[in-house]
């Protein structure tokens, strides 16, 4: 039964970690078993996994990268130290054995969006599940139109993946805007909420899709602003998070009305969210 037990994690090894922002680190995991590695290597932007510290517990996180043909399927997740599992993850030494379950959930329909202009809006650690979107588009750069990246955080020390901004900015037909909520010492860039800079940048809704991830309240207000700019709810994609214990529609934990974040999501069109019976806020 071990082949098909969805509650049993694959064993992996922590092969790398680096700080991303205050309280947030990137963790790189490689699965131990070559067969399992092969089976696992097909995840898509938007999907998520369960990360176990064996003996402490497991918690769900979005993939922060796409499988890399050069480096092999190293799994990357960005993890904020907020609960008891994440505290244990942050304390792991390199080489530690960890558990991984997944890939789980649906994904951003990037194949369907070919030929379109893409606006990516990430707030705080919400930027992490959007990094695979950016990586995917940059890898298939010719398949997509103009790429606008708007990246936000409460303060400069909470911006994630700062060392990759130059690479993203310099990609063809790509623009990037970074903003922080309030002025901070030494910060010379944009100051203001993500919605303010979004209004200023004012990407055209023409043949475009906006992809947002951040705290629920940000998703709500970014949706309003995109609406003002002429985006319809069928041009807005987002990804939600919820407490969950299985990731496969059994534990009953993550429902918003009849929708299960794990199974029907985590990626949703704004048009779906706005008809949710129960608020995601």
């Amino acid at each position: 039964m071990s082949e098909v037990n969805p509650m049993r994690p694959y064993l992996g090894t922590l092969v790398g970690t680096k700080p991303l922002a205050t309280g947030i680190r990137l963790f790189q995991v490689e699965l131990n078993d070559p067969e399992e590695r092969e089976k696992f290597s097909v995840w898509r932007p938007g999907q998520f996994l369960f990360f176990s510290v064996l003996g402490v517990g497991e918690a769900p996180f979005g993939f922060a990268n796409i499988p890399d043909p050069q480096r092999g399927p190293v799994i990357e997740v960005a993890i904020n130290k907020v609960g008891h599992v994440t505290r244990a993850i942050h304390a792991l030494p390199l080489g530690a054995t960890v558990g991984i379950r997944g890939p789980l959930g649906n994904y951003f329909p990037l194949e369907e969006l070919k030929g379109q202009n893409i606006v990516v809006l990430g707030g705080g650690i919400g930027g992490a599940p959007l990094r695979p979107v950016i990586q995917y588009i940059l890898r298939h750069r010719d398949d997509y139109g103009h790429l606008t990246i708007i990246w936000a955080a409460r303060s400069p020390d909470l911006l994630v993946f700062t060392d990759e901004y130059d690479e993203w900015r310099s990609a063809p037909d790509t623009e990037m805007h970074v903003t922080i909520d309030r002025p901070a010492e030494g910060w010379t860039g944009n100051v203001g909420l993500i919605t303010e800079i979004l209004e200023k940048v004012a990407p055209s809704p023409e043949n475009a899709t906006a992809i947002t991830c951040g705290p629920p309240i940000m998703i709500y207000f970014v949706g309003k602003t995109l609406g003002k700019l002429g985006f319809s709810e069928d041009q807005m994609l987002t990804t939600l998070e919820a407490r969950m214990h299985c990731g496969i529609g059994k534990c009953g934990r993550c429902n918003l009305g009849e929708k299960l974040v794990c199974k029907d999501g985590p990626v949703f069109w704004q048009s779906e969210i706005s008809t949710f019976l129960e608020s995601f806020l």
């Binding site: 509650m7 176990s52 510290v53 064996l54 003996g55 402490v56 517990g57 497991e58 214990h245 299985c246 059994k250 534990c251 009953g252 934990r253």
Partner: peptide, 10 residues
């Protein structure tokens, strides 16, 4: 009812 919680324990 089938909701469950999952934890590790020693």
């Amino acid at each position: 009812c089938r909701c469950f919680d999952v934890r590790d324990e020693t």
